[in-house]
Amino acid sequence: MSLTLEQVQRIAHLARIEVSEAEALTTQSHLNGIFQLIEQMQAVDTRGVEPMAHAQDLSQRLRQDAVTEPDGRAAFQAVAPEVEAGLYLVPKVIE
């Protein structure tokens, strides 16, 4: 398997990372090298093997429904790039 430049650009957009044409070429060669390594997996017959998503075969622990978090807006927004009237500002969202 080998990624085309178009695929590289498509993934970059999925991940919202701007990649210039020059960068795309390097990225393509790096990714293809890595996928060559990854491809080793394809030789293995894993039929009937239960996928393992977590390091533990346990069940999820739950919390009680209680309000435990006070308003921390001032502290949280102190590190924000742009806020106004308690809102985070971003370029206009178009629906």
Binding site: Q60, R61, L62, R63, Q64, D65, E69, D71, G72, R73, F76, Q77, A85, G86, L87, Y88
Partner: peptide, 25 residues
């Protein structure tokens, strides 16, 4: 008031983790 009920987890600060509400289940 805006963002006064958004805690570290709701804001997705680095390092925070979700813990599921039993009542919702």
């Amino acid at each position: 008031e805006p963002n006064t009920q958004a805690c570290a987890v709701d804001l997705a600060l680095p390092g925070v983790l979700p813990v599921l509400n039993k009542k919702a289940v």
